[in-house]
Design a protein around this nucleic acid. Structure first.
Length: 514
DNA sequence: TTTGCAATAT
DNA sequence: TATATTGCAA
């Protein structure tokens, strides 16, 4: 049966009627093949779309055109049984179509040919690895359109056509604008040689429809991964559960395990770096503290408590990355911390480290905490948020760091981990005012190198310098602080947090009186 | 069976 | 470099 339409001998045979059956029916490979091949053609450029359509029709293909991304995605998702093959324009690697195909690509059982003006190796590689069976660089030669049936040949009758396919492939490669000779300039070699060895290539072709593809952990997938990891928490963030949570059908447990392994290694590295920088900050730590920070025990928790030099919170903002443009805002916030303004917010506190900014916003009876962990290149932000409908603050934070509010995830705030920043000025203020310090107010303490067991998020400690503490813990903390102070020439003689002297801003007091 | 990890392959 | 695979121990 296969021999009847052996590609090399029949490729030029344009005769015969266009009667054909459904793609998977045995008559798919009739003498007329590939006539009547049902092609889904997508290109946002209507003019170009029309040109391609004309060419395809010349080869007796049955063309369905589409110039809307949403529409073609819909067709691909819900009606791909109406087509034998799809030719789709690629805009960029971050587009919806790429996500769609890389996600459900293994479920799409029709060959997908990508067309693009982008002849970059990165683009070609990424597409080819993520579900495209070929990549045609514009302008596309009609001949390449004529030969699209070859992917169905391979798919339907893999073993018996290997030789033919190779011959045909070679022939096609010599005069095509597909990746083999256009993007990767090796005109006499078969395409994909740059991507895979010949042996694998054959393998790949044999069951390209079913074989698992190499996963590209792009921002989208990685985002899902991170979300799952955060959601599951320290103890449950294992491959199987992450996979379930991500709910991406094309992924395997092994994929996730591999990525998780890499993810953890990255964290380990960050943690090491952090420890190094902590080491450098040792001078800020009292001898007592240094003495009790031997191992990873509970005492370790207090190592490096930085209440003594609270300006660190706002001054240690890196001068690069996205922080820079927001430094002004941060300084404003810092001022607010030291002198609570009479504006909308009762109190607004900021803590930041080399990679993070944390803010606590206390507004009347509710609390918001926003955490914004950063890496150098990008924004990987997270917000903890516990306010009814006050999107104002969220937007404020959002606008500082990203123009994309949707990227901020909101998590319900667990009550016992409310925190606030204590700045140097705050403490002095307290001392001068000699007010009792009731630690009922939410507080945040900046603690470098926190054991993960004490963070509410399993990965927080390795990414961030911010610790959220509950009140009980904070009392302990201040007791330690008190001891430290005594041993440290009474740097904060009047601060006696264990017994009280809380910083209460004016509005807070007014509220209490009312 | 699943997981974590390291080494190794692609 | 990023991801996959493998083998091993828990």
């Amino acid at each position: 049966m296969v021999g009847k339409w052996y590609p090399v001998t029949h490729a030029d045979d344009e005769g015969g009627g266009p009667d054909r059956d459904l793609p998977n029916s045995p008559n798919m490979f009739s003498d007329n093949f590939p006539k009547g091949l049902r092609v889904l053609l997508f290109d946002e450029d209507r003019q170009y779309l029309h040109i391609l359509e004309k060419h395809l029709q010349e080869f007796d293909y049955e063309v369905t055109t589409c110039h809307e991304e949403e529409r073609v995605m819909y067709l691909l998702c819900n009606h791909r049984d109406l087509f034998d093959i799809a030719i789709m324009e690629a805009h960029n690697l971050d587009g919806k179509i790429f996500h769609l195909i890389s996600e459900i690509g293994s479920e799409i059982d029709i060959p997908i040919i990508i067309t693009s003006q982008d002849d970059s190796r990165e683009s070609v590689t990424k597409w080819m690895r993520n579900g495209a069976c070929d990549y045609l660089i514009k302008p596309i030669r009609p001949e390449d359109l004529r030969l699209i049936f070859k992917y169905l040949v391979k798919k339907m009758e893999p073993r018996s056509v290997t030789v033919a396919e190779e011959a045909e492939d070679k022939a096609a490669a010599e005069k095509s604008s597909s990746v083999g000779d256009s993007t990767i300039r090796s005109p006499n070699r078969r395409k994909r040689n740059m991507l895979q060895t010949d042996e694998e290539d054959r393998d790949h072709n044999r069951d390209s429809a079913t074989k698992k593809r190499r996963v590209v952990w792009d921002d989208y997938l990685n985002g899902k991964f991170l979300e799952a990891v955060h959601f599951l928490g320290k103890n449950d963030a294992v491959p199987k559960k992450i996979l379930e949570r991500m709910n991406v059908s094309s992924l395997t447990r092994e994929n996730v395990a591999s990525h998780l392994q890499k993810f953890r290694m990255g964290q380990k590295k960050k943690k090491n770096d952090q420890n190094k920088s902590d080491e450098r900050n040792r001078s800020l730590i009292t001898p007592q503290e240094r003495g009790m920070s031997g191992g990873e025990r509970s005492n370790e928790f207090y190592r490096g408590i930085n209440v003594q030099s609270p300006s660190h919170h706002v001054n240690n903002i890196p001068q690069q990355s996205c922080f820079q443009q927001h430094n002004t805002d941060l300084n404003l916030m810092a001022q607010r911390v030291s002198s609570p303004p009479g504006d909308h917010y009762d109190r607004l506190s900021v803590a930041s480290s080399s990679r993070n900014l944390s803010t606590t916003h206390q507004h009347h009876t509710s609390h918001q905490i926003s955490e914004l962990p950063f890496n150098d290149q990008n924004i990987e932000e997270r917000s903890v948020y516990n306010e009814d409908e006050d999107d104002g603050f969220r937007n404020l934070i959002t606008n500082w760091f990203t123009q994309i509010p949707d990227q901020i995830n909101l998590f319900p705030l667990e009550e016992s981990v409310i925190a606030t920043t204590m700045r140097f000025n705050d403490i002095q203020e307290l001392a001068n005012q000699q007010q009792p310090m009731y630690l009922r107010e939410p507080s945040m303490v900046h603690i470098p190198s926190i054991p993960s067991s004490l963070t509410h998020n399993p990965f927080l400690d390795q990414k961030e310098n911010i610790q959220l503490v509950d009140l009980h813990r904070q009392q302990l903390l201040f007791r330690e602080q008190q001891q430290a102070n005594l041993a440290n020439e009474n740097r904060f003689p009047e601060t006696n947090p264990g017994s009280g002297s809380a910083r209460r801003d004016k509005m807070g007091q007014d509220r209490d009186q009312a």
